[in-house]
């Protein structure tokens, strides 16, 4: 009986995620009064927005199926933060060029990932892991000699200061991305094609879906979203330092899976992923509150993903 109820709950990942968010907020408040204060929640939402933007791209790649995953997002976030910091050097006038350059950079590495996966038939896991290695090497090279750059004041303000209705610009940006994602996935032919190749690539191909082009586009979008997150991250931290983005790889995947998109792809959506991102950030914050250090947090995240696989990892059976 309780097993059935559990199953029923697990079928609605969004419900589970939101319930867990509430539980964790109460837990946090109990452990450390003030944890769930408005100010604190706002800070958590900013951090969640950064993760959520990365996870948007991750979500698209995973939806497209065929073991789709992008392990290079962290590298693109880091590179984008450094490129943006150097192009701005603390001046607002540098913002447009920085955005342009970062988005182009993200799209470029996404394109390479997409070409490797489709034309060379390299498994996404291997392709994007290799790309992550390339990006990490590139970061080391770039950082030698060149100062790491500073965020433009307007950018920092956008990310950290209230902008409209008491919410900072980045939260509005995240909401806008949420709406755009929902529109793409449910109201465009491209969105329907993503689900189609994710659930049955061969059938999609036979129905005239340009499978390779769609998949390349997904990896490019993942690169672009990671680049946007990199710019915002620069605004959040003020200056870019090496490997700031590294922390995003695993959580971006967990947020997607928590949100109800199975790693096998073909079903799910971004709303759940957004809840998943908030949930993870709260969890991270609680772990910090109870003095669990970075390595401990990594272990908790890794274990969380494995436990999630236990519940959500069965999406594959349907495709057999």
């Amino acid at each position: 009986m309780s097993g059935n109820m559990l199953l029923e709950m697990v079928r609605k990942p969004l419900v589970v995620a939101i319930a867990l968010i509430v539980v964790l907020l109460f837990l946090g408040e109990a452990l450390s009064p003030g944890f769930a204060s408005v100010q604190q929640i706002l800070r958590l939402l900013i951090v969640a927005a950064l993760l959520g933007i990365v996870a948007a791209g991750q979500n698209l790649v995973i939806l497209g199926g065929r073991e789709g995953i992008d392990l290079s997002v962290g590298g693109v976030v880091s590179l984008s933060a450094i490129v943006a910091g150097n192009l701005m050097s603390g001046m607002d006038s540098g913002i447009p060029l920085a955005i342009l350059a970062c988005v182009a950079t993200g799209a470029f590495f996404g394109l390479l990932n997409g070409l490797g996966v489709t034309l060379l038939r390299i498994p996404p896991l291997v392709m994007t892991l290799g790309m992550l290695g390339v990006l990490q090497g590139l970061l080391v090279v770039i950082r030698q000699g060149i100062p790491s750059g500073r965020a433009a004041p307007a950018l920092s303000e956008f990310v950290t200061r209230p902008f409209l209705l008491g919410l900072p610009g980045i939260i509005w940006l995240w909401i806008a991305i949420g709406l755009v994602m929902a529109f793409i996935l449910h109201r465009t032919v491209f969105g329907h094609r993503i689900y189609a190749i994710g659930s049955n690539e061969q059938a999609a191909y036979m129905a005239g879906v340009p499978v390779k082009r769609v998949r390349i586009a997904l990896f490019m979008l993942s690169g672009i979203f990671a680049a946007i997150a990199g710019i915002c991250l620069l605004g959040y931290s003020g200056s870019s330092f090496a490997n700031v983005g590294e922390q995003y790889m695993l959580p971006s995947i967990i947020a997607v899976v928590f949100g109800g998109t199975p790693l096998a792809g073909g079903k799910g959506g971004y709303t759940g992923t957004m809840a998943g991102a908030v949930l993870l950030v709260i969890l991270q914050s609680i772990l910090t509150t109870v003095n669990i250090d970075e390595s401990g947090r990594q272990m908790v995240f890794g274990a969380t993903l494995l436990v999630l696989m236990l519940f959500y990892g069965r999406g594959r059976a349907m495709r057999a």
Partner: peptide, 13 residues
């Protein structure tokens, strides 16, 4: 199952 049906998606899609 292989060439036609897009499993798990609505009939309209």
């Amino acid at each position: 199952g292989r060439d036609g049906v897009i499993q798990g998606r609505p009939i309209i899609e």
